[in-house]
Amino acid sequence: MAEIKSSRIEVSDGALIPDKGEHSLFSAWRLAFFGAIGVLILLPVLSPDPYLDIIKFIPDGILKTFEVTVLSIIFAMIIGLFTGLGRISRITFINRLATIYVEVVRGIPLLVQLFYIYYALGKMVQLPRLTSAVVAMSFCYGAYLGEIFRAGLQAIPKGQMEAALALGLSRSQAIRKIILPQTFKVIMPPVGNEFIALLKDSSLVSILAVSDLLRRGREFASTSFRYFETYTVIALIYLVITLFLSKLVALMEERMQHHER
C-alpha cells in the first residue's frame, strides 16, 4: 500500500555526540561540553600567564572563523541546490555536469583544493584572502551539500510531483512550490552537520593567511613560544563550539521527528 512515508534522510559523517536517547546527567555530551568549558574557565584563573593573554588574543579569530563558515555555507547551499537539482535532472548534459563536479570535488583533498583555487584564482584575479577562502570552501562544500539536496529531493514521495502536475502546474512550478519547501525541511539536520564539518574544516584557511581561530593561535604561539598552552585553548574552543552546534542539530532533529506525528 502506497502510504506516504515519513521523509527523513540519513547522511553519515554527522556528529557522534550527542547521541539520542542519552539523557542522563552524565551523558557523554554533558561531560565533554561542560568539562571543556570548565577547563577553559579554570586555566586563566589558575594560571593567568599565559592563559589569560591567550584568551584575550583569540576572539577576533573566532569571529573570523564564523565569518568564513557562515559565508561559505550560504554560497555552498546555493551551489548545492543547483547541483542537487542537476543530479536528478533528466537532461543528460546537466546531469553529467553536476555528477562530474561532485566526483571531482570528492576526489581531491580539501587542502589541495584550497591551494589550487587560491593560486589558480591568484593567477587570473587578485582576490582578497577571505574571498578566496570562501570561494574554495563553497566550491568544495557545494558538492557535499549537492548530495544532501539530491537525497532530500529523492526522499520526497513521487506522488507529490504527480499531484502537482495533475493540477496543471509546470514542472518548475511544482519544484518551487511543492518539492523544494519539503526538501528544505528534511535536509535541515544534515545541513546542520555539514555546517559543523565546514566550521572545523575552515581551520584549513589559516594556511591562506586568513586570521581565523587557528591562525590567531599560531600568531600568538609564534611570538610567545607557548605552543602547548595556546593549542590547548584553541582545541578546547573548537570543541565547545562544535559540541554546542551538535546539540542544536540534535534538538532540531528531535523536533522534526515530533512533527512527523
Binding site: A2, I4, G159, Q160, L165, L169, P181
Partner: peptide, 20 residues
C-alpha cells in the same frame, strides 16, 4: 498539456496531499 490538466482532475490512491 498544462491546459488539458486543468480540465482533468485526478485523485490518487495515496491521496498525495502536499504535506507542508
Amino acid at each position: 498539456i498544462r491546459k488539458i490538466r486543468e480540465e482533468v482532475g485526478m485523485v490518487f490512491q495515496s491521496f498525495n496531499l502536499f504535506s507542508h
